[in-house]
């Protein structure tokens, strides 16, 4: 038995990101693309502290498998996730 690696999408829900578009990104958790089923986990996280200083113009921020993405939109997140999914995935044993 083996399963594909899970892709983790963390949506920053700090107040700035939430005001500037993170709210809409959370729809990816409730209504994900069909192909994401069982392979992508979308979660809301507290402030990632990515918007300090004048970097708040880059809000909303999203972290995909640990990589920070600024100016995130639903389309952009879908593109990045789909690109990761299209790459050959290492498999891991479910028994490990």
């Amino acid at each position: 038995m083996s399963e594909k690696c899970m892709i983790k999408v963390e949506v920053c829900c700090g107040t700035t990101c939430f005001l500037l578009g993170a709210r809409e990104l959370l729809a990816l958790a409730d209504d994900p693309p069909a192909a994401w089923q069982g392979r992508v986990e979308v979660i809301a996280t507290p402030c990632m502290d990515a918007c300090n200083g004048n970097r708040f113009s880059g809000s909303p921020y999203v972290r995909i498998n640990g990589t920070l993405l600024s100016g995130a939109t639903r389309d952009l997140v879908e593109q990045r996730v789909n690109a990761i999914m299209a790459k050959p995935q290492p498999e891991r044993s479910a028994e490990q």
Binding site: G14, T15, L19, A44, T45, C47, F56
Partner: peptide, 17 residues
């Protein structure tokens, strides 16, 4: 509510935390 959000954002106050 938008203005309240802007105030919290400007003060760096994270509601979820």
């Amino acid at each position: 509510f938008e203005e309240l959000g802007a105030l919290l954002a400007a003060k760096g106050i994270d509601v979820m935390s």
